[in-house]
Write a protein that binds this DNA or RNA. Sequence first.
DNA 1: ATGAAAGCGCTAACAA
DNA 2: TTGTTAGCGCTTTCAT
Lengths: 348, 348
Amino acid sequence: VKKASLADIASALSVSKSLVSIVLNGRGDELNISPDTQKRVHAKAKELHYVPNVFAKGLKEGKSHTIGLLVSDISNEFYARLCKIIEGELRHSKYHLMICNSDEDVEREKELLETLINRSADGIIVSTGQKDKEMFKRIVENGTPVVFIDRDLPNSDVDYVGVDNIGGTEEVITHLAGLGYQRIGLITVGPTHVSTINDRITGYKNALKNTGLKYSGNLVKEVSADNLMDNVREAVKELLMSPNQVNAIFAINNHVASTCLEVFNEMKLKVPQDIALVCFDDSPVMRLSYPPVTVIAQPVDQIGVEASKLILNRINQKGKDVKTDIVKEVLDVELIIRRSCGDYLKNL
Amino acid sequence: VKKASLADIASALSVSKSLVSIVLNGRGDELNISPDTQKRVHAKAKELHYVPNVFAKGLKEGKSHTIGLLVSDISNEFYARLCKIIEGELRHSKYHLMICNSDEDVEREKELLETLINRSADGIIVSTGQKDKEMFKRIVENGTPVVFIDRDLPNSDVDYVGVDNIGGTEEVITHLAGLGYQRIGLITVGPTHVSTINDRITGYKNALKNTGLKYSGNLVKEVSADNLMDNVREAVKELLMSPNQVNAIFAINNHVASTCLEVFNEMKLKVPQDIALVCFDDSPVMRLSYPPVTVIAQPVDQIGVEASKLILNRINQKGKDVKTDIVKEVLDVELIIRRSCGDYLKNL
DNA sequence: ATGAAAGCGCTAACAA
DNA sequence: TTGTTAGCGCTTTCAT
């Protein structure tokens, strides 16, 4: 079953391919093609179920009409939701979305970026795990717009949408301190260069300083993402032991937080009596767990909407000589207080 | 910045394009190209950062080296995990994965299937929401292999991987009945033609019959997926009221189940004292909620692995005259008993 | 108002 | 062992 081509409809109508191409691309009026001819072309195209060959088009135009979305972990609710939102936003644009998952693997991310470039993606939205901006510099200079979501790269000439990770973390840690918690541990994932992680760690340190609590490297446990459960279990044990004896834990993200909850269950630790818990990112688990967890919630939908706008803007202004400044959108987060860190003094 | 083409490296080496093409496609030895020449070609290709143009290649070959994965709701943990697994399985194949999200919209799904076909996807893995198999029949007949995941379509000549939805549901409902629950409500989403949903409803009815409980249409609430929270709240209220007065609810999937939990919280209903809950699909929410929810767990990873195998097999056997029978893989599910349906008699 | 022809980068059949 | 050539389907410039 061979698909109809421009040539097929041209010969069926005894006109030239160029004529058909022009009409089908909506430039018929512009070039004074007679209305009658246009009508016949459209009719025949429909009759033959004509669909343009994307490869031929791409080869000729050097464009793919595709936007690549590269997320770092599609099984994380945060990114999954982002995919859904962005797909929805782009649905009625003339671009198709190609979703890719780097699975927090820097090499994999590079491969996927190469793929996207090879396929002439018209734009790329990415939550990057890269350490440096070199690759993106190259990509942007070669004419493919990029928008960073969630994670930024310092001094990169690339648009960005994310949230105030430092401020948000300061807020939640200060909240804990205000409730009387004095020994607050942090469980983070790494090693990593990811800006969100680093910013949250910074926010944690800032807040300790501002509230007069003392910071100690012992209170910060960096666990590896593989075998997360085992690593978190270990980290929790160490944090609870002397000399740390923390009475509250800040989990760097929803994934770590839910793993903490699993470990607490296992160890029969009561929240917040035995240990308080707060984290970055809201999710159904945080709302429905026992007790519900106090979180810093990100405006996920808004991030997706803004990122879609940014990439479309960049794509549209390409070629034109408008030069828009790099946009770094930092959205506000929201502290949602639940019951995982009841008043510490009352718990005594 | 212009990218290097076959011609560039050919002229730099004063050889022909075909020579270069052959060498770069690894057919050099086969065609007796001298090792020295091959070496020079590879060296020059690397030097020029040559990457084949996918459009030219696609145009020529009619293949895209891409497998499409079309899921019905990427923000659902089940599908998000499936994406992750399949991406991992295909990573080291020579195919790229293009993930798409139909968001449970049949029209959207059709559009995306068309897109995938236009882009000459070499194969398509899909969790379909279509009512009939016509579209897939056309796709398969035109030479693009398809594998259904999660949801099957009756009498379709298409490979499938999923689980025993009927048996699984029978098991959990029978479990409830065994604990003494006699009035078991069902909350499902719809209207829909999705096989998994229908099978679970069938399983529910079968189990009631087998355990001697009587079935009533009043016990089954079909809610619309938009405004799920409001609809579930309404459904729960009606199920609790006379004459239904259910003491247990079977939620058709994880999404409905977590919404039920939110509603129960809102209404201050205690699980399982006021109402027991069980559902299809396991997830962190079900493990970490209070109390943890008894579920039918699907072997998600295995579904992903099997689907990847199936699509690769179909793609590889294309053109060859091997004719393999249609495969319908129905995997086993696991009943995981937690505390959301304690012994009914003891609860009295 | 419409057509002819070149060329995008690649592969494969055929020549040499 | 390597080169020549045609053509995949489309857009676009230049003719008519």
